[in-house]
Amino acid sequence: MTIRVIVADDQEITRTGLVMILDAQPGIEVVGEAGDGLSAVELARRLRPDVCLFDIRMPGMDGIAATRALAGPDVAAPMAVVVITTFDLDEYVYAALRAGAKGFLLKDAGAAMLAQAVHAAAEGDALISPHVTGRLLKAFAESGPRDAPAQPIDPLTGREEQVLAAVAGGRTNSEIATELYITLSTVKTHVASLMTKLGARNRVEIAMWAHQTGRKYDRGAVPGTGPAGA
Protein backbone atom coordinates (compact mmCIF):
# COMPACT_ATOMS: atom_id res chain seq x y z
CA MET A 1 0.00 0.00 0.00
CA THR A 2 1.31 3.43 -0.98
CA ILE A 3 1.50 5.95 1.87
CA ARG A 4 -0.03 9.27 0.79
CA VAL A 5 1.73 12.30 2.27
CA ILE A 6 1.29 16.06 2.24
CA VAL A 7 4.22 18.37 2.99
CA ALA A 8 3.94 21.85 4.50
CA ASP A 9 6.92 24.20 4.75
CA ASP A 10 7.03 27.93 4.08
CA GLN A 11 10.46 27.75 2.42
CA GLU A 12 9.93 26.58 -1.13
CA ILE A 13 13.44 25.19 -1.60
CA THR A 14 13.13 23.13 1.60
CA ARG A 15 9.64 21.94 0.69
CA THR A 16 10.83 20.91 -2.77
CA GLY A 17 13.72 18.98 -1.25
CA LEU A 18 11.44 17.13 1.16
CA VAL A 19 9.04 16.26 -1.65
CA MET A 20 11.89 14.94 -3.81
CA ILE A 21 13.25 12.81 -0.95
CA LEU A 22 9.86 11.32 -0.11
CA ASP A 23 8.79 10.69 -3.70
CA ALA A 24 12.05 8.79 -4.22
CA GLN A 25 11.17 6.37 -1.41
CA PRO A 26 9.36 3.14 -2.32
CA GLY A 27 5.82 3.03 -1.03
CA ILE A 28 5.54 6.80 -0.42
CA GLU A 29 3.76 9.35 -2.63
CA VAL A 30 3.48 13.09 -1.95
CA VAL A 31 -0.06 14.08 -2.91
CA GLY A 32 -0.02 17.74 -1.89
CA GLU A 33 2.09 20.69 -0.76
CA ALA A 34 1.40 23.82 1.27
CA GLY A 35 3.39 26.90 2.20
CA ASP A 36 1.59 27.78 5.43
CA GLY A 37 -0.25 26.08 8.25
CA LEU A 38 -3.76 27.19 7.36
CA SER A 39 -3.43 25.95 3.78
CA ALA A 40 -1.93 22.72 5.12
CA VAL A 41 -4.92 22.07 7.38
CA GLU A 42 -7.39 22.80 4.59
CA LEU A 43 -5.44 20.55 2.21
CA ALA A 44 -5.24 17.73 4.75
CA ARG A 45 -8.96 17.86 5.49
CA ARG A 46 -9.72 17.72 1.77
CA LEU A 47 -7.24 14.99 0.76
CA ARG A 48 -7.17 12.93 4.00
CA PRO A 49 -3.55 11.79 3.50
CA ASP A 50 -2.05 8.95 5.51
CA VAL A 51 0.64 11.24 6.95
CA CYS A 52 1.14 15.01 7.20
CA LEU A 53 4.71 16.34 7.37
CA PHE A 54 4.71 19.83 8.89
CA ASP A 55 7.43 22.38 9.54
CA ILE A 56 7.06 24.17 12.88
CA ARG A 57 7.64 27.78 11.84
CA MET A 58 5.10 28.77 9.21
CA PRO A 59 3.17 32.02 8.68
CA GLY A 60 -0.45 32.43 9.71
CA MET A 61 -0.81 29.13 11.53
CA ASP A 62 2.37 27.43 12.71
CA GLY A 63 3.03 23.70 12.58
CA ILE A 64 2.06 23.15 16.22
CA ALA A 65 -1.36 24.77 15.75
CA ALA A 66 -1.85 22.89 12.48
CA THR A 67 -0.97 19.63 14.23
CA ARG A 68 -3.43 20.35 17.04
CA ALA A 69 -6.16 21.11 14.48
CA LEU A 70 -5.68 17.74 12.78
CA ALA A 71 -4.45 15.45 15.56
CA GLY A 72 -5.33 17.11 18.88
CA PRO A 73 -7.25 15.41 21.69
CA ASP A 74 -10.53 17.00 20.59
CA VAL A 75 -10.30 15.82 16.98
CA ALA A 76 -12.85 13.11 16.19
CA ALA A 77 -10.81 11.47 13.41
CA PRO A 78 -7.18 12.47 14.07
CA MET A 79 -4.58 12.27 11.33
CA ALA A 80 -0.96 11.18 11.65
CA VAL A 81 1.34 14.21 11.76
CA VAL A 82 5.13 14.24 11.79
CA VAL A 83 6.72 17.55 12.78
CA ILE A 84 10.07 18.44 11.27
CA THR A 85 12.18 21.46 12.16
CA THR A 86 15.60 23.05 11.98
CA PHE A 87 15.28 24.28 15.56
CA ASP A 88 16.49 21.80 18.17
CA LEU A 89 14.48 23.25 21.06
CA ASP A 90 12.85 21.18 23.77
CA GLU A 91 9.82 23.44 24.01
CA TYR A 92 9.04 22.60 20.38
CA VAL A 93 9.26 18.88 21.15
CA TYR A 94 6.92 19.14 24.14
CA ALA A 95 4.46 21.33 22.22
CA ALA A 96 4.43 19.00 19.21
CA LEU A 97 3.80 15.91 21.35
CA ARG A 98 1.07 17.63 23.34
CA ALA A 99 -0.55 18.70 20.07
CA GLY A 100 -0.76 15.07 18.96
CA ALA A 101 2.27 14.67 16.68
CA LYS A 102 3.23 11.10 15.82
CA GLY A 103 6.84 12.01 15.20
CA PHE A 104 9.41 14.74 15.69
CA LEU A 105 12.50 15.03 13.51
CA LEU A 106 15.24 17.53 12.83
CA LYS A 107 15.74 18.46 9.20
CA ASP A 108 19.26 17.04 9.24
CA ALA A 109 17.92 13.59 10.19
CA GLY A 110 18.53 12.25 6.68
CA ALA A 111 16.37 10.60 4.04
CA ALA A 112 16.32 7.16 5.67
CA MET A 113 15.03 8.39 9.02
CA LEU A 114 12.53 10.70 7.33
CA ALA A 115 11.10 7.74 5.41
CA GLN A 116 11.12 5.62 8.57
CA ALA A 117 9.18 8.30 10.46
CA VAL A 118 6.55 8.47 7.69
CA HIS A 119 6.16 4.68 7.64
CA ALA A 120 5.96 4.57 11.44
CA ALA A 121 3.29 7.27 11.56
CA ALA A 122 1.26 5.54 8.85
CA GLU A 123 1.36 2.34 10.94
CA GLY A 124 0.08 4.19 14.01
CA ASP A 125 3.55 4.16 15.53
CA ALA A 126 5.60 7.17 16.57
CA LEU A 127 9.22 7.94 15.80
CA ILE A 128 11.10 10.71 17.52
CA SER A 129 14.66 11.59 16.58
CA PRO A 130 16.92 9.41 18.79
CA HIS A 131 18.96 12.49 19.67
CA VAL A 132 15.84 14.30 20.83
CA THR A 133 14.50 11.29 22.76
CA GLY A 134 17.83 10.71 24.44
CA ARG A 135 18.05 14.35 25.49
CA LEU A 136 14.51 14.36 26.86
CA LEU A 137 15.18 11.26 28.96
CA LYS A 138 18.52 12.65 30.12
CA ALA A 139 16.88 15.92 31.17
CA PHE A 140 14.15 13.94 32.89
CA ALA A 141 16.72 11.88 34.82
CA GLU A 142 18.78 14.93 35.80
CA SER A 143 15.85 17.04 36.97
CA GLY A 144 16.17 15.60 40.45
CA PRO A 145 14.26 13.07 42.54
CA ARG A 146 10.50 13.02 42.31
CA ASP A 147 7.68 11.02 43.78
CA ALA A 148 7.38 7.51 42.43
CA PRO A 149 4.83 7.34 39.61
CA ALA A 150 1.50 5.74 40.31
CA GLN A 151 1.46 2.03 39.63
CA PRO A 152 -1.25 0.82 37.24
CA ILE A 153 -4.42 -0.49 38.86
CA ASP A 154 -4.21 -3.48 36.54
CA PRO A 155 -0.66 -4.91 36.73
CA LEU A 156 1.33 -5.16 33.51
CA THR A 157 1.39 -8.58 31.92
CA GLY A 158 4.67 -10.28 31.13
CA ARG A 159 4.32 -9.41 27.46
CA GLU A 160 3.48 -5.79 28.29
CA GLU A 161 6.68 -5.65 30.35
CA GLN A 162 8.59 -6.83 27.29
CA VAL A 163 6.94 -4.24 25.07
CA LEU A 164 7.59 -1.58 27.72
CA ALA A 165 11.27 -2.53 27.70
CA ALA A 166 11.40 -2.30 23.93
CA VAL A 167 9.66 1.09 23.80
CA ALA A 168 12.00 2.41 26.50
CA GLY A 169 14.89 1.13 24.38
CA GLY A 170 13.75 3.18 21.40
CA ARG A 171 12.40 0.42 19.19
CA THR A 172 9.63 0.97 16.66
CA ASN A 173 6.54 -1.23 16.52
CA SER A 174 7.98 -3.16 13.56
CA GLU A 175 11.21 -3.84 15.43
CA ILE A 176 9.27 -4.99 18.50
CA ALA A 177 7.15 -7.34 16.40
CA THR A 178 10.26 -8.93 14.89
CA GLU A 179 12.08 -9.26 18.19
CA LEU A 180 9.16 -10.65 20.17
CA TYR A 181 7.85 -12.91 17.38
CA ILE A 182 4.41 -11.31 17.42
CA THR A 183 2.33 -9.52 14.81
CA LEU A 184 2.39 -5.76 14.29
CA SER A 185 -1.27 -5.52 15.29
CA THR A 186 -0.49 -7.34 18.54
CA VAL A 187 2.30 -4.85 19.27
CA LYS A 188 -0.09 -1.96 18.68
CA THR A 189 -2.59 -3.54 21.05
CA HIS A 190 0.05 -3.85 23.77
CA VAL A 191 1.29 -0.28 23.27
CA ALA A 192 -2.27 1.03 23.47
CA SER A 193 -2.80 -1.00 26.65
CA LEU A 194 0.39 0.43 28.15
CA MET A 195 -0.72 3.97 27.38
CA THR A 196 -4.08 3.31 29.05
CA LYS A 197 -2.63 1.59 32.12
CA LEU A 198 0.17 4.12 32.63
CA GLY A 199 -1.83 7.23 31.71
CA ALA A 200 0.74 8.01 29.01
CA ARG A 201 -0.07 10.13 25.98
CA ASN A 202 2.79 8.96 23.78
CA ARG A 203 5.83 6.70 23.61
CA VAL A 204 8.15 9.22 25.25
CA GLU A 205 5.90 9.24 28.34
CA ILE A 206 5.93 5.42 28.34
CA ALA A 207 9.74 5.51 28.27
CA MET A 208 9.82 8.14 31.03
CA TRP A 209 7.58 5.95 33.21
CA ALA A 210 9.94 3.03 32.65
CA HIS A 211 12.97 5.09 33.65
CA GLN A 212 11.20 6.67 36.60
CA THR A 213 10.31 3.27 38.01
CA GLY A 214 13.90 2.09 37.74
CA ARG A 215 13.52 0.06 34.57
CA LYS A 216 16.67 0.96 32.67
CA TYR A 217 16.77 -0.71 29.30
CA ASP A 218 18.95 -0.28 26.25
CA ARG A 219 18.47 -1.46 22.69
CA GLY A 220 20.16 -4.76 23.45
CA ALA A 221 18.38 -5.64 26.66
CA VAL A 222 14.76 -6.67 26.41
CA PRO A 223 14.06 -9.28 29.07
CA GLY A 224 12.43 -12.59 28.34
CA THR A 225 12.13 -12.23 24.57
CA GLY A 226 10.94 -15.26 22.68
CA PRO A 227 8.11 -16.71 20.64
CA ALA A 228 6.02 -17.90 23.57
CA GLY A 229 2.86 -15.98 24.41
CA ALA A 230 1.25 -12.92 22.84
Rank of each mutant, 00 (worst) to 15 (best):
R68K: 14
E175Q: 09
M20T: 07
P78Q: 02
V118W: 12
H211W: 14
L198T: 01
G27V: 06
E160Q: 15
P26C: 07
P78Y: 12
K216G: 09
D154W: 04
A121D: 04
T14W: 05
L18Q: 05
A200I: 12
A121C: 09
E91T: 15
A121N: 03
A76V: 15
G17F: 10
I13R: 05
L194V: 07
M208Q: 04
T172G: 05
I28K: 04
L127N: 02
E160Y: 05
E179M: 09
G229R: 11
G170M: 08
A99R: 03
S39F: 03
L137P: 07
N173W: 08
A109N: 10
R4G: 02
V30L: 01
P59F: 04
T186S: 14
C52A: 14
A34P: 00
R57C: 03
E161Y: 14
G158C: 02
L180N: 08
A165S: 13
H190S: 15
E91F: 15
G72E: 11
A71K: 11
A69K: 03
K138V: 10
D90Y: 06
N202D: 15
M1E: 06
A109F: 11
P155E: 04
D147P: 02
L38E: 00
E205C: 10
E42C: 10
E12K: 09
L156T: 05
A210H: 06
A120I: 15
D125K: 08
L184F: 08
V41D: 00
A77R: 01
S174P: 01
A99N: 00
T172L: 01
E123R: 12
G220E: 04
M208A: 07
L127Q: 00
A34D: 13
C52P: 02
E205I: 14
K102P: 01
G72S: 13
I21L: 13
P155Y: 07
A141Y: 11
V19D: 06
L53E: 09
V132G: 13
D36P: 04
Q162F: 05
D62N: 13
L106K: 05
H211N: 11
L180G: 07
A150C: 04
V167W: 08
R46S: 04
Y94Q: 11
I153M: 11
G224H: 02
A121T: 01
Y181R: 05
A66C: 07
A96C: 06
P149I: 01
S193L: 13
A221Q: 00
T196F: 04
V7I: 12
L70W: 05
G124M: 13
D50W: 02
I128L: 14
S129Q: 15
G37L: 05
V31D: 10
A207Y: 04
P152W: 15
E179H: 08
F140E: 14
D90V: 15
I56A: 07
A221H: 01
P78M: 09
S143M: 10
L180E: 03
L43P: 01
R57S: 01
M20E: 10
A115I: 02
M1L: 11
G27W: 02
K102W: 13
W209S: 02
Q25Y: 03
D154A: 10
E179P: 07
V81Q: 12
I21M: 11
A8C: 10
T86W: 00
E29A: 15
A177I: 13
V30A: 02
A117L: 02
D50A: 13
V41I: 02
A200G: 13
